[in-house]
Amino acid sequence: MKILTLNFLTCAVKACKSSAASYPLHPQEVELAKDEMEYNPQAMLNFLLRLDWAALRMTATELGFATLPEEMPTAEDLQQDELKMRQLHELLLETHVVSGKLVCGNCGHEYGIKEGIANFLLPSHLV
């Protein structure tokens, strides 16, 4: 699972819908892998519009990556700084969580990840 996707996933438990603490999910005991993907600046700029930068910073820190700047880079920043754009591409699209779990900060539910696939099936009483 790409870090990009992690920036959009929320806890699926019904009672967590209205809780701010249910996002982002917290990766734990994860194993990461790099999987190359074609660099596409146009796609990056589109995704940038919807990134939650604060959540991405938190995720990066939790995964042990270098701290991201506090301010989200603007489209212009990135267009002028190819290196920065490529780094973001590498983080968001090429870095994968292959195993571990995602934990909800509100209810504590754990979503297991195996071979990159997160298990979001819920027992029916949590739906």
């Binding site: 996933l9 699926a12 990159g116 819920l122 739906v127």
Partner: peptide, 19 residues
């Protein structure tokens, strides 16, 4: 190349608004 979620769409779609 896509990411995969093992999930039941009848239980909802666990992504934040406007994903």
């Amino acid at each position: 190349e896509g990411d995969l979620l093992y999930s039941d769409i009848g239980q909802g779609v666990p992504f934040r608004a406007g994903t």
